[in-house]
């Protein structure tokens, strides 16, 4: 969390994350170049740049896209999520090298504008295998560019989290365009079955993990059936099932609620982090604050407000405890409203 905007709010783990990322990318680049020197020594420098940047960018994009569902399925992988933004911007950098070099190589120094050439040199838009694949890559690069330049909390705040999230969800459109770009481009030339297996395999991995994560979420929601007791309070959990300083997420009357147990008390807030919509119930109460598992954003459990000087606020909910059972009123209180924590009595 930061009060002021800075280029990057460095901390020890971000530095570590970036060092590992830089090492991995360097390894991929060196490996790809060495493999060419050994097995394909007649390459041209331009082709090597175009192919290496494509390999690094597409590998990173696949990795970036599996981080989300991986962390949802297994919280042990949450550290990968923390600084994913740097990974995304780096991926764009390599995608841009690929795109710009390809446009220069194949479309520049000709009798029409290079960008116009991307769209008008091959005009077989009606065909599948002959489709001008460059166009697909071009639009994907535009999306990745928009994402890269807005990959900062300044834009998250100023565009609003909802709009920002919507913009960044376009990565799935970009990914689809890139898969089609590869399928209708290089795989029409390098038609070895192994390449098709790799492309379909990577797409299957990304899609499969997302489906598994969605299935887990759906299964969880299906269990969220509660009986109304009285005065709009629903019995949703037992006190014992929530470990100390931990939360439980419930879905009731279209409300996504996180109930936390801490200091022998219970409080309930909206389950969606205001930063990037992380699942707060999967976080913990640390130093008296609910802490989001994704990026460590914090909220006071009793009023849903981020501790001063921060300004983020969540809706709060009224709770009651009867005979070791927790009851919640799903009508949200306005964001930041103080609701006295419920004391747990044996």
């Amino acid at each position: 969390m930061g009060v002021e905007y800075a280029g990057v709010l460095w901390n020890k783990q971000k530095k570590q994350y970036d060092k590992i990322m830089a090492f991995a990318i360097l390894w991929m680049v060196i490996l790809f170049v060495v493999l060419h020197l050994v097995f394909q020594p007649d390459f041209t420098a331009e082709t090597l740049i175009i192919r290496t940047s494509a390999f690094v960018a597409f590998t990173l994009l696949n990795f970036i896209l599996i981080i989300g569902p991986l962390a949802r399925l297994q919280p042990a992988f949450l550290p990968l999520l923390y600084n994913r933004r740097h990974l995304g911007v780096t991926m764009f950098f390599f995608a841009a090298i690929h795109g710009i070099f390809s446009i220069i190589q194949f479309h520049a120094l000709g009798n029409i504008n290079p960008i116009v050439s991307v769209f008008l040199s091959n005009t077989k838009y009606e065909a599948i295998s002959e489709f001008p694949f460059q166009v697909l890559g071009f639009f994907a690069l535009i999306i990745l560019f928009l994402m890269a330049i807005t990959s900062h909390d300044f834009w998250l705040k100023n565009l609003s989290p909802k709009f920002w999230k919507g913009l960044h969800m376009m990565v799935y459109l970009a990914y689809t365009l890139i898969v089609l770009h590869v399928a209708t481009g290089i795989l029409q030339y390098e038609n070895n079955l192994l390449y098709w297996m790799l492309l379909i395999g990577s797409f299957g991995l990304v899609a499969g993990l997302h489906l598994a994560s969605a299935w887990k979420e759906r299964k969880w929601r299906k269990t969220q059936v509660y009986q109304l007791e009285k005065d709009n309070f629903f019995e949703v959990a037992t006190v014992k099932e929530i470990p100390d300083n931990c939360g439980k997420g419930i879905w009731i009357a279209d409300q996504n609620i996180a109930i936390f147990k801490y200091n022998n008390c219970l409080s309930a807030v909206n389950n969606v982090c205001r930063h990037q919509m992380g699942p707060l119930a999967e976080g913990q109460v640390v130093e008296g604050c609910i802490t989001c598992p994704w990026h460590g954003y914090q909220y006071q459990p009793e009023d849903g407000q981020s501790p001063p000087p921060f300004h983020e606020k969540l809706e709060t909910y009224q709770l009651a405890v009867l005979n070791g059972k927790i009851w919640v009123n799903p009508d949200p209180m306005p964001e930041g409203t103080y609701v006295a924590p419920i004391k747990i009595t044996d």
């Binding site: 969390m1 901390n11 020890k12 783990q13 971000k14 590992i20 991995a24 297994q74 919280p75 042990a76 992988f77 949450l78 550290p79 990968l80 923390y82 600084n83 470990p243 100390d244 300083n245 931990c246 976080g283 913990q284 640390v286 802490t291 598992p293 990026h295 460590g296």
Partner: peptide, 25 residues
């Protein structure tokens, strides 16, 4: 406190996270 909990802005990640991430990478 429940199981190991990772917070990005803390200096150290829990050992279990480190081990899993290392293995994955």
């Amino acid at each position: 406190m429940g199981k190991d909990f990772y917070i990005g802005w803390k200096d150290e990640a829990p050992e279990s996270n480190k081990k899993n991430i290392k293995r994955l990478l």
